[in-house]
C-alpha cells in the first residue's frame, strides 16, 4: 500500500466521502500495526490543519442556520425576545448571499441597455436595491428583470413573489406580470405572480393600480387591501397585510390556510417536493400558525400533531407524500 494512496483515503474519510467498503479497508490497515495507527493520526492532523485554513462553501447554509440558532437562544437568555425580529430580518439578508445574479446584454438602436436578471433558487430569499433606490425583497423560486437604468417609466418584470418598497418619484413604477400590470408612484406592497397560482397584490401603504392583461380592467387599491386575479377576473378585499408580507422577515404565517395551498408555500420555502395523497379529506384540512426558523422536520411534525395525517419521506427523490390517517 503506497503512502500516497493511504493519504488519499484519509483525506476522503475526513471529508465524509469514503464508501463503507473503503472505510473498512482503511480500518483494517490502521489496525494492522501501531505504526500504521500513528501514521493515520499524524496524517489526519496534517489534513485537518489544511482543512482549518480552507473555506468550505458547501457547508455555508448549514453554518448560517446554526449561527442564527445560537444567536436566537442567546438573545432569549438575555430576555430580549423583541430582538428575534431583528435577527429574522438579518436572516433574510444572510439568505441574500445565495442569490444568483447575471446580466444579459441587449443591443438597442441608440444605446447599450443592460437587463439585470435576479432570481432566487427554491429555499432561498434575497433583497436588493434597484437603480432608483427602491428596495425589493425577492421570495424563493422567483425572478425579477429590470434595466440597468430606468427610462421614462420605471419598468420591471416579475415572475413569482416580491415585496416592493418603491421610492417616491414622478416617474411611474410598473411591474409587469403574466397576469397584468401593477402601477404605482411610491408605496410598499407585495406582488405574488407564480405560474398556475392565484395572482395577488397586497398593499401596505400608498396607492397602487392594477390592470388585468386580457380584459384591461383596472382597479385601485388602498392600504390594507388585496387584489387577486382568477381567470382574468379581479376582486378586491380587505386583509391583514402582515400575513402576506412577513415572508421577507423570514416568517411564514398561515391563517386558516387549506393544506394544498400551505403545501405549495412550504415546497418553495424549503425546496422540497410534497405530494398529497388522493384523498378529498386532505384538502379540507386547514392550518393556522407562524413558522420562524423551524427546520423542515420540525414543520412536518407540527403538521402531523395538529391534523390526522402522516407522511412518508423518500430520501432519494427528496419527495414527501402526505396521507390522511
Amino acid at each position: 500500500m503506497s503512502n500516497e494512496k493511504i493519504k488519499e483515503l484519509i483525506q476522503n474519510f475526513l471529508e465524509g466521502k469514503l464508501s463503507e467498503e473503503k472505510e473498512e479497508f482503511l480500518l483494517s490497515w490502521v489496525k494492522e500495526s501501531e505504526t500504521n495507527k500513528n501514521l493515520f493520526l499524524s496524517e489526519q492532523e496534517n489534513i485537518q490543519n489544511d482543512l482549518l485554513s480552507s473555506t468550505d462553501r458547501r457547508l455555508e447554509m448549514r453554518w448560517r442556520s446554526l449561527l442564527k440558532k445560537i444567536q436566537n437562544t442567546e438573545k432569549h437568555q438575555r430576555g430580549k425576545i423583541k430582538l428575534r425580529r431583528t435577527a429574522s430580518v438579518a436572516a433574510a439578508f444572510i439568505f441574500g448571499v445565495l442569490f444568483t445574479f447575471w446580466a444579459t446584454e441587449t443591443r438597442d438602436v441608440t444605446s447599450v441597455l443592460v437587463t439585470q436578471n435576479i432570481s432566487t433558487p427554491l429555499g432561498a430569499k434575497t433583497n436588493f436595491e434597484l437603480p432608483d433606490g427602491s428596495v425589493v425583497w425577492l421570495n424563493s423560486g422567483s425572478k425579477l428583470s429590470y434595466p440597468s437604468e430606468f427610462g421614462e417609466i420605471r419598468s420591471v418584470k416579475l415572475t413569482g413573489e416580491a415585496f416592493f418598497d418603491v421610492k417616491k418619484d414622478k416617474k411611474h413604477f410598473v411591474i409587469s406580470t403574466e397576469y397584468g400590470n401593477v402601477e404605482v408612484q411610491g408605496t410598499s406592497f407585495n406582488v405574488k405572480a407564480f405560474k398556475n397560482e392565484v395572482f395577488e397584490t397586497t398593499l401596505v401603504s400608498g396607492i397602487v393600480s392594477i390592470t388585468e392583461k386580457n380584459t384591461k380592467k383596472r382597479v385601485t387599491l388602498h392600504p390594507g387591501q388585496q387584489a387577486d386575479i382568477l381567470e382574468s377576473k379581479i376582486s378586491v378585499k380587505n386583509v391583514d397585510t402582515e400575513l402576506y408580507t412577513s415572508w421577507k422577515e423570514g416568517k411564514l404565517i398561515f391563517r386558516e390556510e387549506y393544506l394544498p395551498s400551505a403545501v405549495k408555500r412550504l415546497e418553495r420555502w424549503y425546496n422540497v417536493t410534497i405530494e398529497l395523497d388522493d384523498d378529498p379529506r386532505l384538502s379540507k384540512i386547514w392550518y393556522s400558525g407562524t413558522l420562524e426558523m423551524e427546520s423542515f422536520s420540525e414543520v412536518l411534525e407540527l403538521l402531523k400533531v395538529t391534523a390526522p395525517i402522516s407522511y412518508y419521506y423518500n430520501e432519494k427523490t427528496r419527495t414527501i407524500r402526505i396521507f390522511y390517517d
Binding site: L14, G16, Q48, L51, D56, L59, R62, W63, L67
Partner: peptide, 16 residues
C-alpha cells in the same frame, strides 16, 4: 464565532 465556524465545518462531514 470564527473558531466555532471552523470546528463546525471541519467535523460536520464526518459526523454527518
Amino acid at each position: 464565532t470564527p473558531a466555532y465556524e471552523k470546528l463546525f465545518k471541519l467535523y460536520y462531514p464526518r459526523l454527518f
